[in-house]
Amino acid sequence: MTERANRKPIERVGPRRHTDPVEIIEFNAGDPDLIDRSFALLTAAHDADTPENPDLPERFFRTLFTHVFPGRERHWFAAVADGLALGYARTNFFTDENLELAMVEVAVHPDHRRQGIGAALLAHVERFCAEHGRTTVITNTSVFWEGGPERGEIGARALERRGYSRALTTVNRRSPIDPLGADEEERRYTEALAKAGDAYELRQWIGPVPDDLVDTMCRMETMIISEIPLGDLDFEPEQVHPEKLRAKEAVYAAEGRSWAHAVAVERATGEVRAWTEVAVDEGVERDGFQGITIVDPAHRGHRLGLLLKIANLRQLREHFPRIERIWTDNADVNAPMIAINELLKYTTVDANAEYQKKLEA
């Protein structure tokens, strides 16, 4: 039985106006009832808006309130009226770099939309962010992408009315765990291995980074923001050191999330020059989630990205035979990675529009 089967249902009362005014309150790990209601609300919103996409694992959500990534700070808000939880918002603040940024998530229960609840929540969160020295708010909403199911544009239009501008679009795709078949996979893998030559060693693992690779993996993580397409989003690189890396891994363990990694290590230096990772959640769910795939700019052109992605699919099939699909998202302008994903039979589902707003001082 999955966690979804055991989750507590939110009140389902149908669209209605409320006799009591909507109150927005801040809550945290000490408010288990609002955590329950928020998870049920987010589940209902997912089922209404993006039912083709994977569910939010309950353990993952609850861990948000008890374990925080290093260099992060979280705050939660609920819109309540008549004893019902109508809306939910979460802010993520960076505490090391990007001190001017706030990442925001807002959701309204499907039965209580078009009543100004989302706008009130967002306005409240914007004020909260400004009061805490944040000058830029970033949020996102699901949108339609050619080849995928219909998606409403209500969220996007609402953000634009509030002064948000679209800064980046990422396309959401999925692929079977065995997209090429044995013969074609072996051919592609052998070709990529030959292209890489003897300059690199392929290494793989599941879980924490091996001790001898910690420093070089910190370098790779620090490189991410500089190397991936970010559109108009205003991010600066996050400096990752061994203590921060190990602290992130502790959060993953609490979440029940395992990461399968494949890297190409340059034999001459012992440095990781390419890296890919896929996350798998505990339980019986059949979805894996592609994380970063990155190749050091000085080492591109050797088919390292394709080599590592195929190697990691093999590792996943061996260690997690229940996994049937891998989900990924890429910036719509990331042509090299999209080409690899198309080769691996990824098909479009939808897209996420990242919106950004500069707050008035």
Rank of each mutant, 00 (worst) to 15 (best):
P15K: 09
G256M: 07
P336S: 03
E236C: 02
A264Y: 13
D31M: 02
T328W: 09
D96N: 12
A192M: 06
T19W: 10
L64C: 13
G14I: 02
V240P: 04
N334I: 01
A158H: 02
N28T: 05
Q315T: 10
R7T: 13
G291C: 08
T190K: 14
D234V: 06
T293V: 09
S165T: 10
H132M: 08
L84W: 01
A89P: 02
R16I: 08
A247Q: 10
P32N: 04
L213G: 06
L42H: 07
V295S: 10
Q204S: 14
H46S: 06
W76A: 11
A81W: 01
E360G: 13
T141P: 11
L213Q: 11
H18P: 02
E23H: 13
A5P: 06
R300H: 05
G181M: 08
V251Y: 07
A182H: 06
T222N: 04
V265M: 08
P336V: 02
A351N: 05
T63Q: 14
S226C: 05
D55Q: 14
Y88L: 00
T348A: 07
H67D: 13
V280S: 08
N140G: 15
T135K: 15
W76R: 12
T269Q: 04
V240A: 04
E271N: 14
L343K: 13
T19P: 06
R219Y: 05
T190E: 15
L86E: 01
P176W: 03
R59F: 08
I35D: 04
T293P: 12
A268N: 05
D287A: 14
G181N: 01
C129L: 05
R322Q: 15
S258G: 02
A81I: 07
L64K: 10
E318L: 12
D31Q: 01
R173H: 11
N330G: 01
Q239P: 05
R203C: 07
D350I: 00
V333A: 11
A81V: 12
T293L: 10
I228S: 03
A192F: 12
E238L: 06
V80C: 15
C129K: 09
A130S: 15
T95E: 07
E282M: 06
L42V: 01
G148Y: 03
S38W: 00
G116E: 04
R37H: 08
L193I: 00
G71R: 03
P70C: 03
D281F: 15
R188H: 13
E201W: 11
E23C: 07
E150M: 03
N334F: 01
T169E: 09
Q315Y: 06
M220F: 12
L121H: 09
P9I: 04
P54G: 07
I25Y: 00
P229A: 01
G291L: 15
A351I: 05
F94V: 00
F60Y: 15
R188I: 08
A130T: 07
V80K: 14
Y88T: 00
